[in-house]
């Protein structure tokens, strides 16, 4: 699903450099990315999703060489091919829960919003126990509920790859486990690959694979170890 070769990325402000000679993630895998702050986890997600471009190297997601795509092609690839979940949920305050889930369809012409999409979005929210809150605004939901809405938004386009950047960072310990379990289960049901950045080692048991980021002499080191499952 994801194949990275000789990846090199240097932050514009200089200093830290992300170097990844090789990384392969298979379709349907659930991978946790851990490591100290500033070790490059979020940067890797941004490179995979095409938000950032590498200095050198190749990133393949499915059949696409992300690093060779133009800006508009990367945008289209992101909309159709990747579901994103953020730490701050990043919901739009003036839209209802249902409209927030349908946002990717409203933001990109490539995804035509059809009745089937609405039904799928409503169904996803139902599955995430938010069926009775579809018309509410995000401000009226708890933190855990908001993150579930963000997960529904990442799942609704049926993207084959889900990238989650510390989705549990703002949640209480009990909700954290529920949200990750939910994310993993839903991604698994959809056959999607899941890459999730986390600082919480207690959650690693839920992943089949863990990539641990480190830093040595100003560059990234990556230790690939299997998870509990």
């Amino acid at each position: 699903m994801i194949r990275i070769q000789d990846l090199s990325y240097r932050y514009p402000e200089g200093g830290f450099r992300l170097l990844l000679p090789e990384l392969d993630v298979a379709r349907g895998e659930a991978v946790a990315l851990i490591g100290p702050s500033g070790s490059g986890k979020t940067t890797l997600l941004r490179l995979i999703s095409g938000i950032l471009l590498p200095e050198a190297g190749r990133i393949h997601v499915g059949d696409q060489d992300v690093s060779s795509l133009s800006e508009s092609e990367r945008r289209a690839f992101r909309v159709a091919g990747i579901g994103l979940v953020f730490q701050e949920f990043e919901l739009v305050e003036y839209l209802s829960i249902l409209d927030n889930v349908l946002l990717p369809f409203r933001l990109h012409g490539r995804l035509r919003l059809r009745d089937a999409d609405r039904e799928r979005a409503a169904g996803t929210l139902q599955d995430l126990s938010l069926g009775d809150k579809m018309d509410r605004r995000p401000a009226h939901l708890s933190q855990g509920e908001r993150q579930r809405v963000a997960i529904a938004r990442a799942l609704v386009t049926e993207a084959p790859l889900i990238l989650a950047d510390e989705p549990t960072g703002n949640l209480d310990p009990q909700t954290k486990g529920q949200v990750v379990e939910l994310l993993r289960t839903k991604a698994g049901e959809a056959g999607a690959t899941l890459l999730m950045v986390t600082h919480d080692h207690a959650l690693l048991d839920l992943f089949g694979r863990v990539l641990e980021f480190g830093e040595e002499e100003g560059a990234t080191t990556l230790v690939d170890r299997e998870g509990a499952q």
């Binding site: 938000i51 992101r78 953020f86 739009v92 946002l103």
Partner: peptide
Amino acid sequence: ETMVRIGAS
């Protein structure tokens, strides 16, 4: 920024 990250041009 969220919209752009999700895919808005």
